[in-house]
Computed example of a mutant assay.
Amino acid sequence: MTASYHKYMLEFKRPSGTSRGVMTEKETWFIALEENGKKGIGECGILRGLSADDRDDYEEKLNWACQNIHLGEKALWESLLEFPSIQFGIEMAFLSLKNENPYLLFPSDFTENSKSIVINGLVWMGEASFMKEQIEEKLAQGFSCIKLKIGAIDFQKELELLQFIRSHFSAEQIEIRVDANGAFALNEALDKLEQLNVFQLHSIEQPIKKGNIKAMTDLCETTPFPIALDEELIGVFSLEEKEQLLQKIKPQYIILKPSFIGGFRGTQEWISLADKYNIGWWITSALESNIGLNAISQWTFLQNSEMPQGLGTGGLYTNNFDCPLEVSEGQLWYNKTKKWDSVFWDKI
């Protein structure tokens, strides 16, 4: 078996805003395996400025993993504990290599195109007019769950956008999730949650910055509507640390991004703990290309969650790879009549 790694820059169709800034491109890395003429591919979906493995030695560690591919998936995963995106890329690549179709990792009713995954429609931050345009677009596309990035523009304008949705659709018709990406100041967070509560929101992701454990614990105890931990899970590597975090904060939900938390194995650890402590969860992609999104979607279907998942990011880029995934009426489908990009291997 031989292994190699390849950098690829994904270009956004239009600048995409979060409370951490505006993105125009997204770096990703691929691990390619080859054995007896067969190929396997995995994506290491690092997000600079957020991933726990955004480190100076990232490429060095990728090279090490490829040089030591003979150790096997399990030993490599355990050796790469502080590099969750590489853990995921390795997991994915080995699964890809062993399957007859390198893109069909988890055969199911989903990959047979007989069942779909309900997803949320993502609305990026920007000027109020741009956000309103996106909201109208998502509603017209048939989404029953909308997720808004908030915390970057004037808070009153964000409240007005939520009022716009609620003036047309009740909470029974449209579920609204908001994601603050840690934007709220500690001394303002509860007041802002109270103001947001008027709009019958499903939940808010990461209202304050990660690492403020006491403040987040207090918020989760007093919040008028559910809080979901997202960034809070990043960099929590051991099973013991994961359990201590959930026992302490007692969130209502956790958001699981396999590229950030150690791939399928790391995600499964969080799910087992969440179920143990009666904490809800859903799975979200982390701006991977369609290679990573495909793997996450196939695995997510097998988890049998009835909640809308965060997997609608495949259309963000100008230079993504053609694949069978498609979004229709707020659901993700695996359209077997659509083929994978035939020049994918040349592109990387």
Rank of each mutant, 00 (worst) to 15 (best):
S297I: 02
W282F: 14
T2F: 11
K74Q: 00
Y8F: 15
W281I: 06
S108G: 11
I69D: 01
G314L: 13
G37S: 13
I279S: 04
F164V: 09
F321N: 03
M9P: 06
Q268G: 02
D109F: 07
N197E: 12
L302D: 09
Q244S: 11
S114A: 07
E240Y: 04
D341S: 05
C220K: 05
K242E: 00
N212K: 06
Q173A: 09
S289V: 09
L256Q: 05
I165E: 09
F225L: 08
P107R: 10
K192G: 00
P324S: 10
S108F: 04
L33T: 09
G49I: 05
Q252R: 13
S116V: 05
K74E: 02
I153P: 05
D230I: 14
I261A: 01
A215T: 08
V198T: 13
P15L: 06
N113L: 12
L104M: 14
K149S: 06
A286S: 15
H168D: 13
L162V: 13
Q87W: 04
E11M: 12
N113H: 10
F143R: 03
T337R: 09
E269G: 08
S129E: 15
K39I: 13
E112N: 15
I254P: 03
Q252S: 14
K248G: 03
S79V: 05
I176S: 02
P224E: 08
T2W: 11
I41P: 06
I41K: 08
S96G: 02
P102F: 03
R55H: 14
K39M: 10
G40K: 14
C145F: 12
K38Q: 14
G142M: 08
E91D: 09
Q156L: 01
G211A: 06
L33S: 09
G151S: 01
K26D: 00
G37Y: 04
M92K: 03
L159V: 09
T337H: 13
Y334T: 10
I204W: 06
S108K: 03
E329I: 04
E82C: 07
A183S: 15
K192P: 00
R20W: 12
L80H: 11
Q195S: 15
N335A: 10
K74I: 01
K38D: 12
V198Y: 13
S85K: 05
N187P: 00
D218T: 15
D56F: 13
N197R: 09
L256P: 10
N278C: 13
L332Y: 04
P251A: 06
V178K: 11
I69Y: 01
T217H: 04
Y8T: 05
C66A: 14
L159H: 03
S259Q: 15
G126P: 07
D179T: 08
P251K: 11
S79E: 13
L76F: 07
S285Q: 10
L316R: 11
G72N: 13
I254C: 02
E112M: 06
E243A: 00
T337F: 06
I41N: 02
S167I: 03
G266D: 02
Y317N: 04
